[in-house]
Deep mutational scan, measured.
Amino acid sequence: TKIIYHMDEEETPYLVKLPVAPERVTLADFKNVLSNRPVHAYKFFFKSMDQDFGVVKEEIFDDNAKLPCFNGRVVSWL
């Protein structure tokens, strides 16, 4: 699974690849690859589809939650 993530106000996003199927990747999986960053200091928002509003940034805080996936990749903002 490819996860593209944006940090603070930085213009260029980062990319990490996880050896987990897109439909199975969790917030804990993502946090594990960010071990060099203080993950407890961040809120995690993900590109998600809402039936009422369309594409939104959804906050996910449960480490066991599966991450929303679009075209085989996850897009996140920290």
Rank of each mutant, 00 (worst) to 15 (best):
L34H: 01
V25S: 01
P13N: 03
Y14R: 15
W77E: 04
Y14H: 14
T26E: 02
F30Q: 04
L78K: 04
L27G: 05
D52A: 10
L34F: 05
A21W: 03
E23N: 13
P38N: 14
V56H: 15
D63H: 03
I3E: 02
T12A: 12
F70V: 12
G72L: 05
R37A: 06
F70K: 11
K57D: 06
L78G: 03
V56A: 12
L18H: 04
I3G: 00
H40P: 04
F70Q: 08
D50Q: 11
E58Q: 15
K17I: 11
K17E: 14
K47Q: 13
L78A: 04
N71M: 07
F70R: 08
K57N: 10
T26Y: 03
E59L: 07
L78R: 00
G72S: 04
K43W: 00
T26H: 00
F70I: 08
F46D: 03
C69G: 05
A65K: 05
P19K: 08
Y14I: 11
F44P: 03
T26F: 00
G72V: 02
S48M: 15
L67I: 02
P13D: 04
V20E: 01
V25H: 01
R24V: 10
L15E: 15
N71G: 11
Y14G: 03
H40N: 07
K43M: 05
P19E: 12
R24F: 07
E59W: 07
F30K: 07
R73M: 13
E11G: 08
D50M: 07
Y42S: 02
Y5C: 06
K43F: 00
P38F: 15
I4P: 00
V75T: 10
V33L: 09
C69V: 13
I3Y: 02
K47T: 07
K17D: 14
F46S: 02
M7D: 06
N64R: 08
K17P: 04
G54Y: 03
K57P: 07
L27P: 02
I4F: 06
V74W: 00
E10A: 10
P22E: 03
I3M: 00
F44M: 07
L27V: 00
R37Q: 07
L18W: 01
F44E: 01
Q51C: 07
I4V: 10
